[in-house]
């Protein structure tokens, strides 16, 4: 029987693992998880379908199929990763394949906020530094450990300074990326804000 996937819980202070390089700009969420896989009422089975069409097209040569990338946990991408559809199925599929963090040149906004909401930190790094990391991941095993508090990735004796939005960093360090309970703790303020909105009364 297949193991039940354990989603991240609580504070996220560190992510470590093998890196997997995926080269390309503007990789959209339709490519990460094609729409036909959205016909589901839970996220459980999405891991196997990640990049399904791109992988079929490359016939075993897609980074997610290469043997030496198996069990990788840190995805290295280029510019505007995750653009397009808001489907959370995209980061869910990546997570269920094994991705725990992403380092890229830039991320599309909804994809980024979906990643925060499910506990996948997304770091940015300048184009040339990403390229060099991608190259080392493609030519040999690249293992890194990311310290979220100091936003530093350590690879053996080399350290790379990454970038992470301050608000996202705080959410990972405190566990508040799982936002529901924090939001609900302000319930009186929510009601007060609502009562002060002109349209609430005008639409009664």
């Amino acid at each position: 029987m297949k193991e039940v996937f354990q989603t991240p819980q609580g504070k996220i202070l560190k992510v470590s693992g093998k890196c997997i390089s995926l080269v390309g700009d503007d990789i959209d969420t339709d490519r990460i998880i094609p729409a036909r896989f959205l016909k589901c009422v839970d996220f459980e089975s999405l891991g196997d379908a990640v990049f399904e069409d791109d992988r079929k097209d490359l016939n075993g040569k897609h980074p997610f199929d290469l043997k030496f990338n198996q069990n990788a946990a840190i995805l290295l991408v280029n510019s505007n990763f995750g653009c397009g559809s808001s489907r959370e199925h995209a980061p869910q599929a990546l997570m269920r394949w094994g991705i725990k963090a992403i380092i890229g040149e830039s991320f599309a906004e909804i994809f980024y906020s979906n990643c925060v909401a499910i506990g996948i930190p997304c770091f940015t790094l300048a184009k040339k530094n990403i390229k060099s990391l991608q190259l080392s991941a493609e030519t040999g095993n690249l293992f890194i450990e990311i310290d979220i508090k100091n936003v530093i990735a350590t690879e053996g004796s080399t350290k790379h300074k990454l970038n992470l939005k301050e608000s996202s960093k705080n959410m990972f360090l405190t566990g508040q990326w799982d936002a529901t309970s924090t939001l609900l703790s302000n319930f009186e303020l929510i009601e007060r804000t609502m009562e002060n909105l002109p349209y609430i009364k005008l639409n009664k």
Partner: peptide
């Protein structure tokens, strides 16, 4: 928004 935010 994504599904976790729909939940929120």
């Amino acid at each position: 928004i994504g599904t976790s935010q729909v939940r929120d």
